[in-house]
């Protein structure tokens, strides 16, 4: 039964997360409030791991969340759920690709979805900030990393490694 729920929930995410892997994150936060599978803290850890491992972050997140809910089978089912809508939709529109891409109505609709989705991601950022930036130590650390990341556009893995070390050293 849990596998069916997993498949259904991730099918919905695959259908509505328009714009790539990062967009799945707000949907996962929504899942965290509705099911006991994982909490915001674990979800934030999963984001960091998914960013630093090979494979698309959206797919990694789906496997991860599914695993928390139902072990290895859960991970597989959640991932299948996530990609099912893409696979069906892409195959359906494959023949009319060019037309689809140049359709003014579709473009205009998407131009409106993108900023809205941005709001979703920002809201997810806020959710993570609430549980991770909690005192002076973490606030200072946040500001340092914020400046570093915006100033030197380096690979995220470098910052994730640095922050892990900082976390251990300063006992965050």
């Amino acid at each position: 039964m849990i596998l069916f729920t997993l498949y259904y929930e991730f099918f919905k995410i695959g259908l509505f997360a328009i714009g790539g892997g990062l967009v799945t994150i707000p949907f996962l936060f929504d899942l965290a409030t509705r099911y006991p599978w994982f909490d915001a803290k674990l979800l934030s850890n999963m984001i960091a791991i998914s960013e630093s491992t090979p494979g698309p972050i959206g797919v990694n997140m789906a496997t991860f969340s599914g695993f928390q809910a139902g072990g290895i089978t859960g991970g597989i089912i959640a991932t299948f759920g996530l990609v099912t809508p893409s696979v069906v939709i892409i195959m359906l529109i494959a023949k009319l690709m060019k037309k689809y891409k140049d359709d003014e109505r579709i473009n205009k609709t998407l131009a409106s979805v993108r900023p809205a989705v941005l709001g979703l991601i920002l809201f997810a950022c806020y959710e993570i900030a609430k549980i991770s930036i909690v005192d002076i130590k973490t606030s200072v650390m946040f500001m340092v990393f914020f400046v570093l990341i915006f100033h030197f556009k380096k690979n995220p893995i470098i910052y994730i490694t640095l922050s892990a070390i900082a976390g251990v050293v300063f006992k965050i």
Partner: peptide, 20 residues
């Protein structure tokens, strides 16, 4: 746990960068 607490702070900054 300390490492992950540090990483979570970093994740906020990384995500803000992408949002920007």
């Amino acid at each position: 746990n300390h490492a992950f607490a540090g990483i979570r702070v970093c994740v906020v900054a990384l995500m803000l960068n992408i949002v920007y």
